[in-house]
Amino acid sequence: MTPVRGAEDGWEPVARTIGSPALPGGVADTLTDHGRLARGGGAARWEPLGMSVTPALDLRGIDKSYGSVKVLHDVAFCAHPGEVTALVGDNGAGKTTLVKCIGGIHPPDRGEYRFEGRPVRVGSPRDAARLGIEIVHQDLALCENLDIVQNLFLGRERRRGLALDEAAMEEMARSTLSGLAVRTMGSVRQRIATLSGGQRQTVAIARAVLWDSKVVVLDEPAAALGVAQTQQVLEIVRRLADRGLAVVLISHNMNDVFAVSDRIAALYLGRMVAQVRTADVTHRQIVELITSGVSGELGLRR
């Protein structure tokens, strides 16, 4: 058996975000953030070919201030289709602001916003929705007095003439939910009021993916859930990515992050200190990145 190597010699430096020189646009389009960043970092290797798909979401050089308070500084962020990208950082590191920039709720002051490779302008939530970017906020915004089907289609009801096409909506709702392998929902005609927290989260997620979305951002989906429900939600998150969506997961819980993510993006005081593959890092490194912005070769240059 191969002896287990220590963390030091087993570790190879990857990905530096800050300070990496931007490549000419034409080249950068065909590369991943990783390939690009690795070249900037010098010592690291290129990513394997499988990863060289165009990121669904590609933000570069994002600046955002609220008045005189600078919240995001030169942030780069990517989310790839088929992957869960975890966005981690301490309170006040700028996670929520970055999500608001992505969702068009507070557009960034400066920076480049690319969606599936082409530059776009996302100035309002409506713009984001039109591109296929859905955000599931922490407060799920469901109507408790309506049932699951009614909530899934709220504001986008299917009609047949003047009346609602209940049958088509119910069928679509059921196929979406079973596509997420949700087995625990007794009936799609239950009112939201009768559902548990985890089930509500599931409905909120299902609503986000019902419309052929490309990118789904989940803001702390497991906050305020019990263990069993958290696990269920995590598995649904994973399934979304396996179906080809680009999923961005914001979470404080390192276990959740490591359980489902493919990449981890760490924010520290408004800067993106590292965007790395989950398979390449350890718990300790991510915790160090979150708390001090640097961990060994990773993170901010001293």
């Binding site: 191969t2 287990v4 190597r5 220590g6 963390a7 087993g10 570790w11 190879e12 394997p48 499988g50 392998a181 263990v227 958290t230 696990q231 995590l234 598995e235 994973r238 399934r239 390192m254 276990n255 959740d256 992050v257 490591f258 359980a259 489902v260 593959r277 989950t278 398979a279 390449d280 890092v281 350890t282 718990h283 300790r284």
Partner: peptide, 30 residues
């Protein structure tokens, strides 16, 4: 796994060879 993923992946990241580790997906039963 879901309760100790951080530790499992950390050990995997340091314990397995880089080449086969790169692409391996860790999943829970569907």
């Amino acid at each position: 796994y879901l309760g100790a993923a951080a530790q499992i992946r950390s050990v995997l990241a340091t314990g397995a060879l880089a080449a086969p580790r790169e692409k391996v997906k860790l999943r829970t039963t569907a």
